[in-house]
Design a protein around this nucleic acid. Structure first.
Lengths: 110, 110
DNA sequence: CAACTACATTACCATTCGGTTGCACATTAT
DNA sequence: ATAATGTGCAACCGAATGGTAATGTAGTTG
């Protein structure tokens, strides 16, 4: 983990970032943004979440630098700012995907 | 993120694993286990956490497969079971470490 | 101007979660 | 057997968190 002392402050900062990804709703939003930048309304449709809910999650992700925004007229477009997110998910899946694939419980027929 | 459909169930499973790392106390424990396997008592000393607290965190980490245990006499030795944890932290640090290094706020003099 | 739309913000509620206390269980020592 | 030690576990409490409803705000349209 680099050659840097893991002070309790640094551990808290790392934990804070993990916490942002520790929520299905936010992972869902980030995954929707993987394809393209999207407005809050579009994200509401794709994720089936309420407006205030999506907005709140986006504020959190924006505050931590996971997403950027761009206002255009009446709409606000959000886009990924940290592609490492999916690298993290891939690693996190790892054995998870293996197990799931074997059990064939979570995926549609392939 | 692999070529696998991200069902809501899978998103929940991924989020659950991120949540395990979204806590300074657990990151502290995992980091202590990086050097070597250790007993609950040793982990209590290194992390300055209460006994029941350490035990509870270890149960959670064990349930998700992040750590393994080995009972020897009166002691229980815990060890890392998923080295990917630190790979995740490294990535998660990324820009975080950069920013911190520049501000020189979080690290002792180097 | 007023009406409408897209989004942000606040307040509130229900749930979750980290930490502690107390107790139970297993193992070792006397 | 009794005492002492290491650990697990249930119950509880206060704080944090996700979701929602209501309200505010900026920008557009008529």
């Amino acid at each position: 983990m680099a050659d840097i002392p893991l002070t309790s402050e640094l551990l808290s900062l790392i934990a804070e970032r993990f916490k942002a990804l520790a929520e299905p709703a936010r992972l869902n939003i980030l995954n929707a943004l993987r394809e393209d930048e999207k407005t809050v309304s579009q994200l509401m449709e794709e994720t089936s979440l309420g407006q205030a809910n999506v907005s709140k999650h986006l504020q959190l992700l924006h505050g931590l630098g996971f997403v950027d925004r761009r206002k255009e007229g009446l709409y606000v477009y959000y886009r990924l700012a940290d592609p490492a997110v999916f690298q993290l998910c891939d690693i996190m899946c790892g054995r998870l995907v293996e197990e799931a694939r074997e059990r064939n419980e979570l995926f549609s027929a392939r």
